[in-house]
Nucleic acid binder design. Sequence first.
DNA 1: GTCTATAAACAGATAGAC
DNA 2: GTCTATCTGTTTATAGAC
Lengths: 225, 225
Amino acid sequence: MVVESQKLKASGGADQTRAALVRAALILFGEQGFEGTSTREIAAAANANIGSIAYHFGSKEGLRIAVADHIVATIQAIASRNEAEAVKEVPASQDASLAITAMIERMFSFFVVQQEAAEIVPFVLREMAAPSPAFERIYAGMIEPIHKRCCDLWEAATGEPAGSEETRINVFTVMGQIIYFRLAREAVRRRMGWADIDFEHGAKISKAITSNVADILAAKKERTS
Amino acid sequence: MVVESQKLKASGGADQTRAALVRAALILFGEQGFEGTSTREIAAAANANIGSIAYHFGSKEGLRIAVADHIVATIQAIASRNEAEAVKEVPASQDASLAITAMIERMFSFFVVQQEAAEIVPFVLREMAAPSPAFERIYAGMIEPIHKRCCDLWEAATGEPAGSEETRINVFTVMGQIIYFRLAREAVRRRMGWADIDFEHGAKISKAITSNVADILAAKKERTS
DNA sequence: GTCTATAAACAGATAGAC
DNA sequence: GTCTATCTGTTTATAGAC
């Protein structure tokens, strides 16, 4: 993936310059890493000049913080939209296992298949693996809220308290099954002999994960009953 | 984690200089990334001079390749030792599920608790997430062999062919549960309220993963019988 | 707010003495 | 093989014109 050569900045306006810089930095930091990206490169991709980074964000590090804040805002917009849809789909919390399956498929689509907000995931992965000062925002505004939400679903499905140590660990094991396919995308692609991981492949993986989680939930229910 | 200030190079000798450079690069590339590490930094940590990198490896990129080869050699030494031990522990392939549990615990200890070869994991994680020319070696010499070995165990435990698409995907879901706790170590640490992920915490996580896999295997056995 | 010019530090690679 | 000095280009940050 390469940054489009089209202008990210539509016309004049300070807000548009700012937004174009944030989006260019999001993409380039995700692809090449923070140290692997120069401010000149970012300014060029955003159709702005080098000085504008210092003016709007103070420094390169300030730009990274702004990128993190932009991610959190985007994620929260997506989350509230999904919640509105989820309420429509499952009027009562009729079957918690179904809700978990839906959540897994949504997260898998977001992290691995990536139709929307594809630029966000590489940046977030890098922050998770090697936290920078910007990680604080990503954790508090994205990782923790998603994990909490999953713990609530887990409680509804198993009866195990959402706040218990066991539940929190179990939810991480589910998130690991999903995100690993993004982290190790190239290894998976090679080992599976796939040219790329397309929608069809994604469906197979997603099915395997939801099946795993269904088996785990069923076994837990069996043991506690 | 910071590189020890002690000398990595014991005395003279070309091989010792070479080895010290590889080890210093392994640690620093893992901690700070390839672009985030300067050749001067590596030479200083290895108690060598900058020119020695060009002499021994041709370029910074050549050093990265040498690091990858060193990792593969180390992994293969560990793997053959483990195999020798595994034969002692389980004389016949009496219970394949036990062998899988043992494999998971070994991998978890290697990737997350990290008593031995702790420096290797960060470097490998970075190559998985953002493959460089050195990834080829890591994949062929470490990732694929481990994955193949796990697929064989999976076949022994479930009857599903080791080469089937389903088996390969399932093995990746297990590896994901393990490696995620290393990738997202900082997020896990915060969410669990742990000061660090020590041996006791590792035991809890490992138990959760082995329990998950046991449930998945049992459910698969149930369905095919 | 935007843009250019420049400062000061640092990068990787190389040449050549020993 | 080791080490120093240096070349060439690039880095972030800044100063100041417009």
